[in-house]
């Protein structure tokens, strides 16, 4: 029976000697494993090299009624109409490419072809959700501040 493939090998009751041997083996692997786990914590970053999620985009006058302004460095579109000013992230909610705006106001993503309508709602392609609208507020110095870490409902605008 001994050495045959499959079950029989494991059916014998564990003997004391074997048990001690197994204990030794497991303590060896346990030690090495624990050491490895500890060591592998290192590559997981604790601090991210990121700039502040809040950034000023300019004075309200810089965004006249009806304007659509792209700020590539900040990855946002800023819209302004009679309803107020809004910021929409250009980061595709699928896998993080940057969407482009077409002449008709719709958006498409170059990476896997997600499409969004003019309000950022996803209409086709793999994107699981619409483009993210970002919080816009008026800072103490009179400049508009966008918070790319704070999502607001689609259609939210700020009146200034």
């Amino acid at each position: 029976m001994n050495g045959a493939l499959g079950g029989p090998r494991f059916e014998k009751p564990i003997q004391r000697r074997n048990f001690l041997g197994m204990l030794a083996a497991w303590s060896f692997f346990g030690t090495i494993g624990a050491a490895l786990l500890g060591a592998l914590r290192l590559p997981m970053p604790a601090v991210f090299p990121e700039s502040d999620s809040r950034f000023p985009i300019g004075k309200p006058e810089d965004f006249p009624d009806g304007s659509v302004i792209h700020i590539p460095r900040r990855r946002v579109w800023v819209f302004s109409d009679t309803g107020g000013i809004a910021a929409v992230s250009t980061v595709c909610p699928h896998l993080g490419c940057l969407v482009g705006r077409e002449d008709n106001g719709n958006y498409t993503c170059p990476c896997h072809g997600s499409r969004f309508d003019a309000t950022g709602k996803n209409v086709s392609g793999p994107a699981p959700r619409g483009l993210v609208w970002l919080d816009v507020s008026l800072g103490p110095d009179g400049r508009l501040i966008v918070d790319s870490g704070k999502e607001v409902d689609r259609g939210t605008r700020i009146l200034v």
């Binding site: 590559p43 997981m44 970053p45 991210f48 090299p49 990121e50």
Partner: peptide
């Protein structure tokens, strides 16, 4: 988390 370990950040940069 996979992405953070791989990139050391949330974007592709120095890390």
């Amino acid at each position: 988390q996979i992405k953070e370990v791989m990139l050391g950040a949330h974007f592709i940069g120095e890390e």
